[in-house]
Write a protein that binds this DNA or RNA. Sequence first.
DNA 1: TCTGGGGTCCTAGGACCC
DNA 2: TCTGGGGTCCTAGGACCC
Length: 409
Amino acid sequence: MAAPAPRLIAHLDMDAFYASVELLRYPELRGLPVVIGGGRRHQPVQRADGSREFFRLRDYTGRGVLTTSTYEARALGVFSAMGTMKAALLAPDAILLPVDFDEYRRYSRLFKAAVRNMAPLVEDRGVDEIYIDLTDFPGAQDDQGRAAGQALKDAVFDATGLTCSVGITPNKLLSKMCSEFDKPNGLTLLGLDEIPTRIWPLAARKINGIGPKASEKLAAHGIHTIGELAAADPAFLVANFGKSYGAWLHEAAHGRDERPVVTYSEPVSMSRETTFERDLHAVRDRSTLSGIFTDLCIELADDLARKGYASKTIGIKLRFDDFKIVTRDLTLPAHTLDARSIRRAAGECLKRVDLTRRLRLLGVRAGNLAKLADLVDPHGAEAPLVAQEAPAAYHAPMPLFDAAPPSQD
DNA sequence: TCTGGGGTCCTAGGACCC
DNA sequence: TCTGGGGTCCTAGGACCC
């Protein structure tokens, strides 16, 4: 009896995805430092002679972070998640483009469709990343997936004009690390026998699941590399990081990961949140806050309806001027996707928060989701779903921020 | 130079039921 | 008078990821 073929898992990561999509639109920017950022209106201006005038990073004022930067911009020290104002000091002449999520989602669908058309076992990991199970891909076992990986890259490029980087190893954990090895436009294979030479020298932080807190704590114990983590006593890790996380740290450092590629999953929650242009006070800016609060509830209700879900737990999220985050939630007697019901429940949550400090962010969350189709019982009667109101009613004034909204009836 | 928006999963205490 | 478990739901916070 032959042993079952070892798994071959690919991780495919689009190169500087948002920026690369923008370069397809604005090819004259190729080779320049370009960043994509949260600014409101930094749309390029069309000149009379047909050329375009772009905003520069130095022209930006406001709160916001970069979502992506081209490799030329990264060379100047500006990276995604960096505050835009800080980036402007480092690279004042870099081109700033506004975020266009619709366009990125369009390209996301294109590249994923191209991959699925070739290899159907695809796990979505956000707009620019996927895992692909190539274990049973024809011929993949003959060359550790190299030809399949190149074919994936070619298919993505043919469909979008964009490059990606691919890592192929026996599991998701290792493939995720390997796709970084030769970015951009890379293809990296790795076998389990190469873990000591190619994985152990890396910083522990490179493991997907070890974030800033855990890596700092590890460093405090003298553990900086994955190899040092692999050498650490599992009992020590469990004692310091908990039973579950400690055991996982040990396994991850040895490159062990049995998680399957999951091709479908139901959403757990949906949310809408916004950071204000300036911090707002619950009393002094009550009407502004109330309007934003209601708008968030309406957007969330629209999201639920568009995707066909109802929620039984409505929550709010506040970020204060000192960056402290507070959440409150409330479980309802029945599922709802009605904006007024969401607004009322969120208003109840808000009453339980001390609103002395000024607010920087406000968010509304819908959890405990159920598919609308599943809320009708087998006998055909309506499940206890809160009735929807006409959309026009959503826009009725809701003057109070910290008190209950007007009654529904 | 104050640091976005959309998610998932885990932990932990208390309520409540058996 | 003193002392049980297990199971599930609800709520709050936090780490982490893209």
